[in-house]
């Protein structure tokens, strides 16, 4: 695996191209308040004609609801009943004890192989996919690599943290908690549970990555 440099890429620019100069600028007093106290517009205030930034809570990026969790499903827990298995394509999947929901991510081995992840294309919410289908992609060192569904499943939730912090894939690829590098949560049916049976457990996967690569 070649060492990854900064994973952005090839650009042919004119011979005169140099790093763009950042021009100095003086923050100005404007409509929305002085630059240093400017508070990002918040959607729920939009109908309000009066802007009162001081009354707002900390400006937070609004989460984009990608999907509504299925009401019938219990959210995946990190209970002892959960089992983790791996695919030959280096994804992992946790399945809960009653085999109805799971969490998907990419393995530490794959994260290391990919190099510095600079962008994660998250799966589409509420999408039904078959085992092996591409559900998203990660970009590292000029490479767009598919993320494949380890089992037949329906995506119920995606890890929006990765939009802001793609590097979590390298830092904690197999962490399924908040802030971890997990990719998505899924609802699983009988076919998915059957697909799961065919995957490798941690020891088998370790042997696989040791032998095959």
């Amino acid at each position: 695996m070649p060492a990854g440099g900064p994973a952005v890429d090839p650009l042919q620019a004119g011979p005169d191209a140099g790093p763009a100069k950042q021009l100095a600028s003086v923050p100005r007093q404007g409509l929305l308040g002085h630059a240093s106290t400017y508070v990002a517009p918040v959607p729920w205030l939009r109908d309000n004609t009066i802007r009162r930034p001081l009354m707002l809570p900390m400006p937070m990026p609004m989460p984009i609801p990608v999907s509504m969790p299925m009401p019938m499903l219990t959210p995946p827990t990190h209970s002892a009943g959960e089992i983790r298995k791996y695919t030959k394509d280096h994804e992992w999947v946790d399945l809960n004890a009653d085999k109805t929901s799971g969490v998907i991510g990419i393995s530490s081995y794959a994260a290391e192989e990919l190099g510095d992840v600079v962008y994660v294309e998250l799966p589409e919410g509420d999408k039904f996919v078959k085992a092996g289908d591409a559900i998203g992609a990660v970009e590292s060192v000029k490479s767009a690599a598919d993320i494949n569904a380890p089992i037949t499943c329906r995506v119920t939730d995606v890890n929006l943290v990765l939009e802001e912090k793609p590097g979590q894939i390298n830092a904690v690829p197999e962490d399924d908690s908040h802030g971890g590098g997990w990719i998505c949560k899924v609802a699983v049916d009988e076919q998915g549970a059957k697909d799961f049976e065919g995957l490798m457990d941690a020891d088998e996967y370790k042997a696989f990555t040791g032998a095959d690569h």
Binding site: D9, Q12, G14
Partner: peptide, 29 residues
């Protein structure tokens, strides 16, 4: 060759912060 750079310079760039992948400029020949 001398015009390529002009296509790859956006007047909006100084006003944008973006997720994703940013190009790295190189002198070309």
């Amino acid at each position: 060759i001398d015009r390529i750079g002009q296509f790859l310079r956006s007047p909006a760039a100084p006003y944008i912060t973006a997720q994703g992948v940013e190009s790295v400029r190189s002198k070309i020949k």
